[in-house]
């Protein structure tokens, strides 16, 4: 809790990538979360294209601290036959409330046909999907302008909000046009004024705090929100209220 607001970190990982210092030790995550008042972190495992392997690891990780972590389902169109069955399993049996997608690990921009069975599944269930977004061809936030009107029951979350200015502008433009597009804040690009820009142009009700932990420590990432020149009300929305609404938790 921060000043009475339940804090939800919308972007975190299960898995290890030691060469970058990423270790999914729950004590490390909880220690950093507790130091700044993060109540809940959303986690996903993106290193296995079958989905099942990573989703099971996510479920196991979450089960050790179910009041602190929420798992998201991961699937990849590189194994198309497994996508929808694995989503059904992850949502219905593992209890995950949302989906994570990672276009850089595939050959396709995320508005292309191989991805659409995922969107149809999410449309049927009314689920949120968080996408890695950046300025490369597979991950451009402008694709939300194709998807958001086509799948109005899906909430589309732009992770990293595109990272760089030109892609960030695309994410903001999509959020301005469609009520089911959200802007997530984690990035190593901690450019001054970004949080203020997201709130001012995209709307405080669309901004979601995320950290990318354990690749990155959640403390400087939440510091971006706390030290931004935005209202306390906007901070509360970004830190947890929007995520709680999106996930129904």
């Amino acid at each position: 809790m921060i000043d009475g607001t339940r804090v939800i970190d919308y972007h975190g990982h299960v898995g290890r990538w030691e060469r970058y210092g990423m270790v999914d030790d729950p004590e490390l995550l909880l220690g950093a979360m507790d130091a700044v008042g993060i109540d809940v972190a959303c986690l996903f495992h993106i290193f296995h294209p079958d989905g099942t392997t990573g989703n099971d690891l996510t479920a196991k990780f979450v089960a050790r601290n179910p009041d602190r972590f929420v798992g998201f389902a991961y699937v990849s169109p590189t194994m198309p036959d497994r996508m929808v069955p694995e989503l059904e399993r992850a949502i219905d049996k593992l209890g995950f409330p949302a989906i994570k997608l990672y276009p850089p690990y595939t050959p396709w921009p995320f508005n292309e046909e191989p991805w659409h069975p995922i969107y149809e599944f999410a449309q049927d269930r009314g689920l949120a999907i968080i996408f890695h977004t950046d300025h490369f061809i597979n991950s451009r936030p402008r694709y939300f302008e194709d998807l958001a009107p086509a799948y109005p029951r899906v909430n589309f979350v732009s992770a990293h909000c595109g990272n760089v200015p030109e892609a960030r502008a695309e994410a903001i433009a999509a959020a301005q046009k469609y009520p089911n597009v959200y802007l997530e804040t984690c990035s190593t690009y901690r450019t001054p004024g970004v949080i203020e820009e997201l709130v001012e142009k995209g709307g405080a009700d669309r901004v979601l705090y995320g950290s990318d932990m354990p690749l990155m420590d959640p403390r400087p990432q939440i510091g971006k929100i706390i030290t931004a020149r935005i209202s306390d009300e906007a901070k509360r929305m970004a830190l947890g209220e929007n995520a709680a609404r999106l996930l129904g938790i």
Binding site: A35, V36, Y189, R190, T191, P192, G193, V194, D217, R219, P220, Q221, I222, G223, K224, I226, T227, A228
Partner: peptide
């Protein structure tokens, strides 16, 4: 490393360590 990065986040971080 302002203005490449915002001035506050790392300072906030350092104040929330052990």
């Amino acid at each position: 490393w302002y203005p490449r990065y915002a001035m506050g986040p790392i300072l906030f971080y350092l104040h929330h360590t052990r």
